[in-house]
Amino acid sequence: MDKVLMKGNEAIAEAAIRANCRHFFGYPITPQTEISAYMAKRMSKVGGTFLQAESEVAAINMVYGAAGAGVRVMTSSSSPGISLKMEGLSYIAGADLPCVIVNIVRAGPGLGGIQPAQSDYFQAVKGGGHGDYRMIVIAPSSIQETVDCTIDAFDLADKYRMPVMLMGDGMLGQMMEPVSFPEVKTDHLPKKDWATTGTKMKRKANIINSLYIHPEELEEVILKREEKYNTIYETEVKYHTEGLENADVVLVAYGTTARIAKAAIALAKQNGIKAGLIRPITLWPFPTDIIAKTAPNVKCMISVEMSTGQMVEDIRLAVNGVCPVHFYGRTGGAVPTPTAIFEQIRRYA
């Protein structure tokens, strides 16, 4: 049998190894610690490096160094730890380095709590670190999808030379489902001839850097990167839809919340209400087009999140006033129930 039962965290770690990631730098924090624990066990067996850094700050800078040296590299953390990594992330984006960062989101702000949340949406898709930069953000909603997205994350990072974040919540990290691992190919990806591997006295020195002396010079670099971001927006958007035809109410939800939303849609169906779902898989680039296209055909949309309303802003931008966009969320580590979401559907149907 090719299927194994795995926790989300373990599945991310194993998928990374299958994707030829041989360098992992981490720091323990609940609820993502299993990723480090799994890496610690597996990396030495595949000839890779697992290193527990002295802090999240150090870990992300080790990622910067290793990415600059041309290897596939990953780090993982949970919300407060991701805040600490933001400095390094900005430098990684500024130096155009490929790497994968996992955020298994817990409740915040501050120490918050260890229960699942989606309240790092803004931090992930709107910046977090300083400067004009973007990061591809992928939010899977099942363990199998977590495996597939982890592999995609490494490919996208290498293809575009940029950081890619895999974002799950504590529940996705902790739950188990059966998964299978696809075969991984990397021969279609560009060569890393820019990496610092030593000149061997055969080429000019490679420099990994984000500092530019003249404002015009820096502006040019940023605008060129912006073109890359535009290409990504045109070609890499991923989402999943269900029952959009004839739907009166459309829920928009990602990650674990999307699965709960599905249960609510089933309840609605039992009660004779037609509801559909748009589930963004890439949070950046955001699936603006499908939302805009759906808006004229529905009574309203409801954003369901484990936050006080973050993604809802992007939905409203996409809808651009064409239909009402409501919000329902739980926060602080509390999880919405199918019944509560169904109540919202009934209210607005």
Binding site: F25, L51, A58, M62, G65, A66, T197, G198
Partner: peptide
């Protein structure tokens, strides 16, 4: 030193 660690561990 963290960046150097990353480079050294990579190669």
């Amino acid at each position: 030193p963290a960046v150097a660690t990353g480079i050294k561990r990579a190669n």
